[in-house]
Design a protein around this nucleic acid. Sequence first.
DNA 1: GGGCCGCCTTGATCAAGGTCAAGCCGGATG
DNA 2: CATCCGGCTTGACCTTGATCAAGGCGGCCC
Lengths: 240, 240
Amino acid sequence: MDITRRDIHSLDIPVLCKSCDVRHKGMCGALAPEELLQLSRQTRQIEQPAGTELVGESTDVDAYDNVMSGVVKLSKTLEDGRQQIIGLQFAPDLVGRLYASESPMTAEAASDITICRVPKATLERLVERNPVLRKRLMDQALRELDEARDWMVTLGRKTAAEKVASLLLLIATHLDPDARGETRVFDLPMSRLDIADYLGLTIETVSRQFSRLKSDGIITITANRHIEIVNLARLKKRCG
Amino acid sequence: MDITRRDIHSLDIPVLCKSCDVRHKGMCGALAPEELLQLSRQTRQIEQPAGTELVGESTDVDAYDNVMSGVVKLSKTLEDGRQQIIGLQFAPDLVGRLYASESPMTAEAASDITICRVPKATLERLVERNPVLRKRLMDQALRELDEARDWMVTLGRKTAAEKVASLLLLIATHLDPDARGETRVFDLPMSRLDIADYLGLTIETVSRQFSRLKSDGIITITANRHIEIVNLARLKKRCG
DNA sequence: GGGCCGCCTTGATCAAGGTCAAGCCGGATG
DNA sequence: CATCCGGCTTGACCTTGATCAAGGCGGCCC
């Protein structure tokens, strides 16, 4: 469904389109990046290096960030510094939420990212007027809930080996979604520390598990970040 | 706001009411039990003993269950039998969801419960027509997402002692919400196995942590289930 | 009462994963 | 080139929590 100039100005556009139905997932990943850019003259595209903290998750948000490339990590920290990553947002997910969370959370670029920043008021007005978008946002919230609950099983009941295998599979699914056959190739979008914080492990344990997968011939690693899954079936068997 | 007979029949009633705003939380806990009962002649109130599995979470749901007393546990199980409880629903939460989850989940009575069962079609029609209810459902979904993410920190980064303390605090909050001062009294609505499965531990570890809290003078336990938190401040300090 | 069963506790031992420490590697910098 | 630094790996050792095993306690049934 095409977006007309009039639609854009009224901020009441229909946002269903083929590409959305296929690709979009995540909390609020309901708009294609291109749509978002067209949506409002207040919308800006921004590049951020890895490590940058994003606004948009705290109570006084004034913008939502649509991830256009790279990966954003959401995390929570205990008082003594222990950290847990509670979600990864891949393109084209939208970071930030309608009706902000009351419990503190940080959003940070895990890799270098490009984001598309939309003023809070703009998006919320759009949501209020557009039932299709609203329905899609509800679906996305429920899907994020599902993902969080699935990951709770990983955190609570899987071994270190199973956790690492599960993460590789998750990333492969997002970064190499159309691949067929028994191999997958991608660059890890995050450091060992991030991986450990996502899995509830230490960097040493993560590193040892990578080495084991390597010596078992299931993956190859080059330049610390470039992963090739050589035998997908065997990796899946290790996910518990 | 009162519910009139005409409203009930049109299934387009406003559902905001003082008691709701104050007490309701959880995925879809947007209706007061009394409202729900009045809502439709198809709504039935049912009693279930602990251990009963509820329908309502699988793909072919045909009903939603509003918890009126007791606690319902939501869980996921790995192929080899390892189980993780991924959420607890206290009265007056609503179990089941609009647009069912695709990843398998089980809902089971943790304690003896009373539920109020609403036909799926009835509730969904109501949601479609009632913007206030819809907004509240969205809020509840986001709140459940928050709760899941908070629990991910507990599962991934807390020690056994901190996990048990966190759970006691969580249950106290729900079952003895209006209490003041340094003590809380309640009956555990779940077995040691359920507790272990919620915390990602074994029953032995849970039991040992209870014994330790007891011998440290932070709680007292009688009849295995009756808990008195003697020193709330010290319990909170142990939550990490 | 006696025996059984489910649920919980306690103790002894074990192993998965954490901690501490050393060293590697590649890129940046002088 | 040498050096430094951050991120990663590897090894040695230790701690936490799992596992295995025994026993307690209360309810229930004969």
